[in-house]
Design a protein around this nucleic acid. Structure first.
Lengths: 250, 250
DNA sequence: CGTCTAAGGTCAATGGCGTTGGCATAAGAG
DNA sequence: CTCTTATGCCAACGCCATTGACCTTAGACG
């Protein structure tokens, strides 16, 4: 019959047959349940078996909705982006707008750290992701940046945001034990290093202990916007505006 | 008695008993083999079973050297950092020095993308990591940055470097299929969006296709150094020098 | 050089995991 | 009301990390 191995797209679904226990499945319900499970069981705790259990459905049923766990992962990622920009409206001040978008994305990812770890570095090409990219580009163009400069800043901005979101989420998503161990590192290991071997760390230890437990994203974001602002006001880009420093990887 | 459950630290090892097939194990050999296996089998392909197979040893033998796969992961991460700064010497020009350090770390992580994915967001507190942090702080202090400013820049610099390394490594480490799919996304999905619904993406599509396949790290790094340079020359920090934008997470 | 202890190797078993092929049943088109 | 087939369930496969019991021999010590 050749048939299966194909997932019916959500909008084409006609027959909504309830599971043994009465719940009626949908992409939406599955993604939401997956997010809840990620929060409860950690980023490695999203398993087909457990998800099936939470939905009162057989694990294999999930394959009627997603091609596999990876496909589900992408759907989760797009849901996060949608949630981040839900209700956002531009104010007209480009710098403040970008700052708000960046902090919103960062915040939503940190609110779902276990999900963020799985999805932050993926390109889904789904609706919510496209809408976010369109919004960012629009802010820059409306502000008056020329097209090449817009693309340059857009690239640095979105990748910086996602990169920090993933990094910070990874810390938060660590198992309780590893997390406190990592945090204590700055108070124990680093704070106790002898001045003789590590003088710079020793002198900075108190400040480090205070700073390193927080995210560096707001600082890095401000530095990026700071640098971008100069190319708008000044006669032209000061330095490093070309595409050099290109991919020597891949 | 009481049974060990403890791993003998490498420097205390006396008895070097060969495995059934003659190989003599060591932390070094295990980490190197693990790196090779990660490259060959992908970031999810480092398994105790396979590692044992590659070493001609029983998987359970690994537990004599590391407390578990997580402990091994940390050792791999520290090895990467050590490799990145191997042979590095400061030139005295702080901006160039930081740029070099950043690009070195980024490059080594991208050279071992599967390993980078596992380790970039971990704090090991091991020797190589400490040495790297000491070096970065020293560059900034020697350049004349006051201590609080040094710590602020250090934090943004190291986290941005690791964050981009992890993000870019994750792309490179994707299975061949997903990777080319992601790259084609910029030429297919994004390039074909109608001007009516996504005008900004449409006008930028060619530039995006050219840029997005490369890493934004060099650009973001230059913008960070650019912003930092102003706080050195000017009378004082222009803006955003305080610790605000603090952790509203955790 | 001989003894003997415990480090460092092996083996077998446990309870997870994602995924698949076959099967059953009821939703809803006609 | 009929009949197709979408969508659910089940059982099984081959992976995985980790553990406890066991065995063997390296090398400290007399």
């Amino acid at each position: 019959m050749a048939v299966p191995k194909q997932v019916v797209p959500e909008e084409k679904r006609r027959r909504r047959r309830p599971t043994r226990n009465g719940t009626v499945l949908s992409e939406r319900l599955i993604v939401d349940t997956a997010l809840r499970m990620l929060r409860e069981h950690g980023s490695a705790g999203l398993t087909a078996r457990r998800l099936g259990l939470a939905l009162d459905a057989d694990p294999s049923t999930l394959y009627r909705y997603f091609r596999g766990m990876d496909d589900l992962t992408l759907a989760i990622g797009d849901a996060l982006i949608g949630q981040a920009l839900h209700g956002w409206r531009p104010t007209g001040e480009w710098s403040a707008d970008l700052r708000a978008i960046g902090l919103r994305i960062h915040a939503v990812y940190l609110a779902h750290p276990q999900a963020a770890v799985l999805t932050a570095s993926r390109v889904t090409g789904r609706a919510n992701e496209l809408a976010a990219d369109e919004a960012i580009l629009d802010v820059l163009r409306t502000a008056g940046f020329p097209l090449p400069e817009t693309v340059r800043i857009y690239h640095a901005f979105i990748d910086q945001t996602l990169a920090f979101a993933a990094l910070d989420a990874a810390s938060v998503a660590l198992p309780r034990a590893s997390l406190t161990a990592d945090e204590d590192m700055w108070r124990s290991t680093y704070a106790r290093l002898p001045r003789s071997t590590h003088p710079r760390i020793a002198e900075a230890a108190p400040l480090l202990a205070a700073r390193m437990v927080a995210s560096a994203y707001p600082t890095a974001l401000d530095m990026l916007l700071d640098s971008a602002a100069r190319t708008l006001t000044a006669e032209g880009p000061g330095r490093a505006c070309d595409i050099e420093g290109r991919a020597d990887w891949m």
